[in-house]
Simulated scan of single mutants.
Amino acid sequence: MRPTEGRPDRPKRRGAGWPQPLSEVDEEEVLRRIFPNLRTGPSVLIGPGDDAAVVIQPSGSVVATTDTMVRGQDWHDEWSDAHDVGSKLVTQNLADIAAMGAVATGLLVTLAADPQLPLGWAVDFADGVADTAAWDGVPVVGGDLSSAGAGTVMVSITALGDLQGRRPVLRSGARVGDVVAVHGSLGESGGGLELYLAGERPTRWASVHEALAAAEVDRARDHLMWVHRTPTCSVSSGPLAADRGATAMIDLSDGLARDAARIGRASGVCLQLSRSRLVADFVEDTPLEMALGAQRALHHVLTGGEEHSLLATFPADCPLITQQTDPDVHWWVIGEVVAATPDGAHVTLDGEPVSGGWDHFSG
């Protein structure tokens, strides 16, 4: 059974103190509420407050990525609060930087919102960004505010990274004979989303003792919903994998089957996944199986999105894979890279083509 990753405690929200809509305060007041909680660092020469930030990039190259979230499409207010949204948005971007083998050096944050959005929501969103960025040691260097149409709330982050002299790990480097491995969880965010869509909501435990005494299945459901609201990524694992010889790597944002196929297509190979390994490490005796049963658990392991774990291929004799002694950097071997199949499948499960996952336009 794969161990559950540790997480930081949820901080106290500040936004409740500012219920007035954005239309009742000017942009300078919004920024005055947000800036004090944004942390920079030694790589930032010029931080928030000027026309642009200045960030040191020692290697001379810049890794850049961006992600956008829209209310009603990428989150729902009835289960994700503003802090959750900010936290998830940071994780999405940092996972992309890590998947290239790079270290994040700065975040640029954008909020476009209906002027009737409460100021407190913007403050809590900024705190979610700041708290998660600080947890991962990444400075927030600036961003933008804009008004939007009635009911609209859209947020985005552009993340910058530095390879620190490494070669970028691309999707196109997988080779026949490599092993396929994942760092992090599989399917938990997708399982949490299924529970939310079915009308489940987290239990509000009165105390830690009450939570510990609760039924195991209730704690399992809460865990899955928590992971969906605020997924995490071990950002140091990407650069470490690059240093130890990863041949291809990707952030698992759209599901294992879909993202593994992206490596397969780019590399001209097939990633053959092992059902027995996936079941043993990510289904049996896990919160997924406890909450949803073995069949639904395996479905989410293969297709659940927004996990933001790292999927990579390595030479079969890579010490990071063969000599795993540190649980914080553990990579779970789930398959192997084989030659492209005659029918063009780029990912299979025990030799049978497998597909599915999240698509932003078809669902």
Rank of each mutant, 00 (worst) to 15 (best):
V85Q: 01
P118A: 07
T325R: 14
A113L: 01
T303Q: 09
V63H: 00
R244K: 13
G177S: 08
V354Q: 01
R219L: 11
F35N: 12
G344V: 02
V338L: 13
R275C: 00
N93C: 09
G60T: 07
V179W: 00
R275P: 05
A242V: 04
T247C: 05
D218E: 15
V54T: 12
H346F: 03
S362K: 11
L31R: 10
F282S: 06
G101Q: 07
M154T: 14
A294F: 11
P327A: 06
T286G: 03
L310W: 00
A215W: 03
A150N: 06
G192I: 02
L193N: 03
I157H: 01
L240S: 13
A150Q: 14
P36Y: 09
D26Y: 12
L117Y: 02
N37L: 05
F125A: 04
G187R: 05
G151N: 04
P19N: 12
H183G: 05
L107F: 10
G335E: 00
A52N: 09
A16C: 02
Q20E: 15
L311V: 10
G357A: 06
A280N: 15
G149K: 02
A64K: 13
Q20G: 10
F35W: 15
L108T: 11
E78F: 13
N37E: 15
I34S: 07
P58D: 04
E188K: 00
G86F: 09
S87N: 00
L320M: 09
A294Y: 13
D243W: 02
A345G: 05
S236D: 10
Q92T: 10
E28D: 13
M225D: 10
P202T: 03
E289F: 09
V179A: 04
D144G: 07
A122G: 11
G363L: 13
Q323I: 02
W331A: 01
T132R: 04
R71P: 00
P239M: 11
G184P: 06
S267I: 01
P36G: 08
W135A: 13
P115N: 13
L311Q: 07
N93Y: 01
P3G: 09
V25T: 06
C318I: 02
P48G: 05
P21L: 12
T232P: 08
E5W: 05
H228V: 02
L89T: 11
V338T: 08
L186R: 00
S185K: 06
F314E: 00
R244W: 04
E216I: 07
G143F: 01
L160Q: 10
D131A: 08
Q57C: 15
P21F: 11
V70P: 03
G6P: 12
R167D: 12
P315T: 08
M69A: 09
P42C: 05
L108A: 04
E200W: 14
Q295P: 04
W358N: 05
S61I: 07
L240N: 07
W226R: 15
W121I: 03
E5A: 13
S309Q: 06
